[in-house]
């Protein structure tokens, strides 16, 4: 029975990968990761929840658009290099087409006062949603006293002083990651 779980992944055609990831890409607004989990684990049953978490781990560890990275990893697993190309293409093709259509409308009608007012309202809603996301993420940070000062420092450096992100992130990872490393070591000693 145990060997059942480690068997080779089921065969999935490239077309199925493409359309599966198209569905994921078109199903969410402002991020599609929860839909990816739902589709891959519950709907299509291409992977178990544990497999999904294991593959997502690397994608969230690395920089870049997480869900695109996830498509590469899952595509590779089921279709090799071709799968790794087809899955992210499926993920992005539909949404990119829609957004380009909207871009054309914006070029045409964006200067109208009605469009300007509507987009300002949506941008305000988007800013609010971003604040909410930041608050949720801040609440999820463990050991807030050690790590939230880094949040404040990043906000000052990037939001207020407008410093360059690559330099701030490298320094930030060295400092914040250093603190995390030290805390982990202390935790292991106890």
């Amino acid at each position: 029975m145990l060997q059942e779980q480690t068997k080779a992944p089921p065969a999935i055609s490239l077309a199925a990968l493409f359309f599966g990831f198209s569905k994921i890409g078109l199903s969410g607004f402002g991020g599609v990761l929860p839909f990816a989990r739902h589709y891959l684990v519950d709907t299509s049953r291409w992977m178990t929840a544990e497999e999904f978490n294991a593959q997502l781990g690397l994608c969230q560890f690395l920089p870049g658009p997480n869900v695109v990275n996830l498509a590469v990893v899952v595509g590779r697993r089921y279709g090799g290099l071709a799968g790794a190309l087809v899955a992210p293409l499926g993920l992005l093709a539909g949404p990119v087409a829609i957004v380009l259509l909207l871009a054309m409308l914006y070029d045409r009608f964006g200067a109208l006062p009605e469009a300007q007012r509507m987009l300002r309202g949506i941008a305000a809603a988007g800013a609010g949603l971003l604040f909410a996301m930041a608050v949720r993420m801040a609440l999820a940070v463990r050991n807030k006293r050690a790590f939230l000062p880094f949040t404040v420092l990043v906000f000052v450096a990037i939001g207020l002083l407008r410093w360059s992100l690559p330099a701030v992130m490298l320094a930030g990872i060295a400092a914040s990651g250093g603190v995390a490393w030290w805390l982990l070591r202390e935790g292991e000693r106890r």
């Binding site: 560890f61 993420m137 990037i158």
Partner: peptide
């Protein structure tokens, strides 16, 4: 350590973006 350390930085970035 990197994973734990990056999260609070990302929060600061998203606040700035908002």
């Amino acid at each position: 350590a990197v994973q734990l350390g990056v999260a609070p930085l990302a929060v600061g970035l998203i606040f700035s973006g908002a």
